[in-house]
């Protein structure tokens, strides 16, 4: 490919500090390929997305006589992270601290240098908790519009995103029905929709497939796989098959500690067998805790 000439497209934008700047948005490249054919290639300037990083440094959460999360340090970049662990391993506690709704006993969490307890961090966040409620008078559409407003999305864009997401999660027919009439699976799909309504850079999903039927699970996996291309997706579950096919990285927790972290491709074995083996090797931790 031979570059003939290129043009830059600029945009006049406001940066994080509120200062107006001019930024190069993309380059339009006129190239000639090997066959001599001229082509136009648009290269978007998205270094920011490429460099996004969520850093956890020695994060600990201690209750009276139990350490729920024990000095975990991690760096998350773009991609899908599957967080596996048994009930009581500390997954939900870790997720809540990543969302800023639980204060750590010690340690720090920052996304591109932005601390977790700031509005800026929250504006990049999407969260689906393990259990969530709803205002009884809300319909599915009302709920998404309300959450969109709280996430700072204007009315027009919120309406557009709501319609789009209701279609994606197959709730368009039930949009005007009250949430109290929804089944468990429908509520879960609504929860997923609200988590992604602001197109977050950090998406934290705690047991997201609970209550979903197999067809919905497959659709959910495809949706997450797509989101993981441009965002940090942290998916906590104790169902191995949820992460087996889509996670780029696997994290395993046990008794508040991180027992394994690595790329999915490093695990050549069946993930479930690997998980059970990892869990079995750490039974000593249980025995020590009980004594």
């Amino acid at each position: 490919m031979h570059l003939l000439r290129w043009y830059a497209a600029f945009a006049y934008i406001r940066n994080r500090q509120g200062k107006q700047t001019i930024k190069m948005v993309c380059r339009i490249c006129l190239t000639r390929n090997r066959q001599g054919k001229q082509t136009i290639k648009v290269v978007h300037n998205t270094e920011r997305e490429e460099n996004m990083e969520l850093v956890i440094d020695r994060l600990t959460k201690q209750y009276k006589n139990k350490i729920a999360v024990d000095r975990i340090s991690l760096r998350f970049a773009q991609g899908i992270y599957g967080l596996l662990g048994a009930n009581g391993a500390g997954k939900t506690t870790l997720m809540r601290m990543l969302c800023g709704i639980l204060n750590p006993t010690s340690g720090t969490i920052a996304f591109d240098g932005i601390d977790v307890a700031t509005e800026e961090y929250r504006s990049e966040l999407g969260y689906l908790p393990q259990d969530f409620g709803y205002y009884p008078e809300f319909t599915g559409k009302d709920f998404l519009m309300y959450m969109a407003a709280l996430k700072g999305i204007g009315k027009r864009e919120a309406a557009r995103r709501t319609e789009e997401l209701l279609e994606i999660v197959s709730l368009k027919e039930a949009a005007k029905k009250k949430i109290k009439t929804y089944s468990g699976g429908m509520k879960q799909r609504l929860g997923i929709a609200q988590a992604i309504i602001n197109d977050p850079k950090i998406l934290i999903l705690d047991e997201p497939t609970a209550g979903l039927d197999p067809k919905e699970r497959v659709r959910f996996r495809n949706m997450i796989a797509e989101l993981g291309k441009d965002s940090i997706v942290i998916l906590s579950t104790h169902i191995v098959s949820d992460v087996e096919h889509i996670a780029d990285y696997i994290l395993m927790m046990n008794q508040g500690k991180l027992t394994f972290q690595g790329k999915r491709e490093e695990i050549t074995d069946d993930l479930e067998a690997f998980y059970l083996r990892e869990f079995g090797e750490n039974e000593d931790v249980y025995e020590d805790a009980c004594l």
Partner: peptide, 17 residues
């Protein structure tokens, strides 16, 4: 009523918390 209806976790994580 956020607490009474179990919405507090969701609302804590939004931009306007």
């Amino acid at each position: 009523r956020s607490y009474q209806n179990g919405m507090e976790e969701l609302e804590m994580t939004t931009r306007y918390s």
